[in-house]
Amino acid sequence: MDLKKTVRKLTGRSEFYILLVFIALCLLIEVRSHQFFTPNNIVDLLSALVVPGIFAIGEFMVIVSGGFDVSFPALASLTGFAVTKLLLNMDYQGGVWLPILMTLAIGGLLGAFNGLFIGYFELPAMIVTLGSSSVFKGFMQGTLNSKQLATIPVGMRNFGTSALFVAQNKQSGLTSRMPTTFIALVVVLVLAWFLLNRTMFGRGIYASGGNAVSAHRAGFNVKRTRFLMFVFVGMISALAGMCRVCMMQQMHPTNMLGMEMNIIAGVVLGGTAIVGGSGTLFGCMLGTALIVVVENSMILIGIPTVWKDVFVGALIVLGTGLSAMQVTRAQKASLRNVRKEAAK
């Protein structure tokens, strides 16, 4: 009986379907290439997941609170450039802690800029971040006169190249390094999970995404919650940008721009409701991983990389289409159930 309930609970959630799609995709690639479940491929994928994964966590929180953030690539680029440039000018030779602290500070500050407009002026997040993304980009490219930085401080370089362990594919002999930056993803994930599920602040994010007026009446400080949430999102987005700079061994000011749409798509694929209020971090990571796998595994099954966007686009349309139809069906079913109960 309990099992039945659990199954029904599972099948009622869109994460379940995404998980099925995800497993099916992995199996398909494995069958076609026999290369998917090799240690080095898995490490490569996990390594590719670091930056989109952290971005997705930030976007997830914003969507749960009832908005959209399109500014995080600009925010991360600006922070990454500012910190790298400043340290290069200082001829900084120390470890990675200072850069990370600076990143968090600047990221938090820029996040506060978003949070001010969205939290305290109650303006729609999508529009504000559209504007602030322009401002950040303009500030980076105009005021800071950003150019590609071919070298980065030694501490950051070491951080980016260091590996937790090295995985080897016994057949091909190829090796892949698990980057230390993966720890950043894990830390952010654990922290975000704790904030969202174990603190009243996090429940406030869910509550205000469900019904902001009720949240206010219940005693949540909705304005402050949103403000602090954007500070946090700014900090982790900036951290993702820093990880990317370290992993790429160079600072390219514009190559993160334009990532926002795929990140949003991943989060929503993972079952996060775009109207806010519901979704899980597990689903969010699953949706993001799905997109990362599609983007990175085309070569394995012999599809030229130019087809990448076609597949990701089709995935977004199919995935959201399926879950939209699922929602419509569920609504109809629940209507029937209510009637049945009433008829009793």
Partner: peptide, 21 residues
């Protein structure tokens, strides 16, 4: 299909860009 506009058009944009590629 009742896909939210933001996602439907986003997906189609990606798909078309892919076709261009």
């Amino acid at each position: 299909v009742k896909i939210p506009p933001i996602l439907a058009t986003l997906g189609i944009n990606q798909l078309l860009t892919g076709v261009c590629m």
